[in-house]
Design a protein around this nucleic acid. Structure first.
Length: 269
DNA sequence: ATCCAGGAATTTT
DNA sequence: AAAATTCATGGA
């Protein structure tokens, strides 16, 4: 087991804010499967404890411990909407995801809901992911790029009309593209992602924010549309305009602002 | 039964 | 270019 001391994190808010899908909590631990990793984490006071096929470097990278979330939100002390969400959910952190798992997960997310997305992804992993053991239990890695090549299996995972999107994206995706996207500007990276079927603007923004460190990405779904309209815009605008407005207003903080506001809206539903 | 869910693609105004 | 319709599937 490893310990990282004095960490600014609230695992409950971090995992339950809808950014990641393969986790569950049990006896004070959060069990996490992501990419080719399987591990459990918990906080004891301000210490973060972890165990599994991970090391400290991975945990710091995964939970983005290099980022100072307090500093980000200290810039919005005059913004009541943001401050309310920050005070309520302090410790919520963005997670740095595996690009391929993130892409497939968020293609599944369109016109769906979190329990169903979890079911889709779990089924794909159980079918294709190589086994991983933790606490004497079997878990699964996420299928490698190229492995999701059977349309019937994708249908059996209840991905519905998204099956063909995953299938084609799986055939076209390459490791080199991941590097290109990572090294591209927000705008260029977004264009590259949106060439794939099933990836529109909202899904692209999720992928850019959660897997490619594009802090200015501001995914706008129906919930964010409502919040932004009420808090800032006062008039109806299409999602793309709302996202552009948020990127301009919040810059590289947009992604963190979005995550807090999104979680706040979902809880107060 | 009917409607909606963290949308995107396609078709129709 | 903007607005309406379609696309599977589980749950309320």
């Amino acid at each position: 087991m490893g310990i990282i001391k004095n960490v600014d994190i609230h695992l409950g808010h971090t995992f339950e804010s809808g950014q990641i899908f393969r986790y569950f909590s049990k006896e004070g631990w959060f069990y996490v499967q992501h990419g080719d990793r399987c591990f459990k984490v918990r906080t004891i006071g301000k210490n973060l404890e972890y165990e599994g096929n991970v090391n400290e470097e991975f945990i710091r990278h995964f939970f983005r411990l290099d980022e100072d979330v307090k500093a980000i939100f200290s810039r919005y002390k005059k913004d009541k909407t943001i401050m309310d969400a920050y005070q309520r959910f302090k410790g919520l952190r963005l997670i740095r995801q595996d690009p391929w798992e993130c892409i497939v997960s968020f293609i599944c997310s369109s016109a769906s809901n979190i329990p169903k997305i979890k079911m889709n992804v779990q089924h794909l992993c159980a079918t294709y992911g190589h086994p991983l053991i933790l606490d004497g239990r079997q878990f699964n890695a996420f299928p490698l790029p190229g492995a999701l090549c059977d349309l019937d299996v994708l249908k059996q995972a209840k991905t519905g009309f998204r099956a063909k999107y995953i299938y084609e994206t799986n055939t076209r995706i390459t490791q080199e593209l991941f590097e290109t996207i990572r090294n591209s500007s927000y705008d260029d990276a977004k264009k590259l992602l949106m060439e794939f079927p099933g990836i529109g603007e909202k899904v692209a923004d999720c992928i850019l924010l959660f897997a490619f460190d594009k802090g200015e990405a501001f995914p706008v779904d129906t919930w964010m549309l409502k919040i932004m309209t009420k808090a800032y815009l006062k008039r109806k605008l299409p999602p793309s305009k709302v996202a552009a407005y948020a990127r301009k207003r919040f810059g590289k903080d947009a992604g963190y602002v979005q995550q807090y506001l999104f979680y706040a809206s979902r809880l107060s539903k």
